[in-house]
Design a protein around this nucleic acid. Sequence first.
DNA 1: TAGATTGTTAATCGATTAACAATC
DNA 2: TAGATTGTTAATCGATTAACAATC
Lengths: 216, 216
Amino acid sequence: MKKQHISDAVIRRLPRYYRYLDELHSRGIVRISSSTLGKRMGITASQIRQDLSCFGEFGQQGYGYNIIELRAEIGHILGVDEPRRLIIVGAGHLGHALLQNFDFAQGGFRLDNAFDVSPALIGSEVNGVAVRSMDELEDYCAVHRPAVAVLTVPKSAAQEVADRLVALGVDGIWNFTNTELMLPERVFVENVHFADSLLTLSYRISKELNNDPKKG
Amino acid sequence: MKKQHISDAVIRRLPRYYRYLDELHSRGIVRISSSTLGKRMGITASQIRQDLSCFGEFGQQGYGYNIIELRAEIGHILGVDEPRRLIIVGAGHLGHALLQNFDFAQGGFRLDNAFDVSPALIGSEVNGVAVRSMDELEDYCAVHRPAVAVLTVPKSAAQEVADRLVALGVDGIWNFTNTELMLPERVFVENVHFADSLLTLSYRISKELNNDPKKG
DNA sequence: TAGATTGTTAATCGATTAACAATC
DNA sequence: TAGATTGTTAATCGATTAACAATC
């Protein structure tokens, strides 16, 4: 039975299932039960079945799940088979790193241009992707209508550039600027807050050290 | 009343409070009530008070919270005032970007060395930080005992390098390799899974488009 | 003092886990 | 067929929200 509302907790587990299924597939494993998968991932079999049941029925009693099939289903749910255009806005160190390392195609995105204000970068090509001037952003978007913009500009420019991108009609922003963007609700923002992430690690380490673990 | 166990949900909100308080402070605001802060952050006043009460009593009836004080308290809870050593392992594009952009000191970390296998990088200096050979990792750790290692090596080397770091006594790993590391429980791992993050954005966009929002 | 706002207890809501009939 | 495992309903657990006495 498909559910109406899917909770954020479920959505955030989907990519993880996807990743594990990839891994299992690449090891040549064909089928898996929810309990075996759960043991590997450190979650309960119930949770896996409950999560999947939000989207349909993908298993078979007495057998489990066919890995290739389930992987394809989850990919479909995540939208990886409906390729969308994506641009990188800000080709500094971080934008550069994403251009060089990150496999956008695997997530169903087509990256064909990056944008920056720096004359030193404009006109260059990074890993086969052209870096254009920010002045061309309006014209480019009018023609190519990218669905997602990766925001890797300096913090000081973040809100302004985000507003501009929203005005140009992007549906989502992948935000690496470590600021909270104020944008209309219709635009999806996915934040990658490095600082927040490192601080949670800091918390856990300092708490552990203060508690003198397993000795107190 | 201080709680024994702090849930992950609470911990992950702390850096966000910290960030907002910074912002308010930099705007010259001196005090704030839980309800005003909640409105700004899009959460309930109850949740803020409940969260803070896990760690102590930081407010005053009829007044609210002093921003500087509360910020300092949260910083303390997060451990930013107990500086710890941190190393970057893998000085490729992503490691490079972190070296150039990220303010480790703000999170209470002292970064003084990066490590890589590439002869082209070894011996160079990035933003004042020396890049050493991975061969020196053992000797370095024996002397300086870094608490945290930032793991920005290729996926294929991730587990192996992580094992090595754990053997060298690091308490935490900030993992950017997009793999699930298998490590002993005593080591804290904070994952930054770019691919997972982008896939959740993909999901939300494709779902929204399929549902033909506010028109069906 | 009166008004505002805290910290905390109680109520509600949602998410996770357990149980089990259905069935491959 | 017998055993295994699903999808789903019910039970439990935990997290969020509401309420309110305490008090600055």
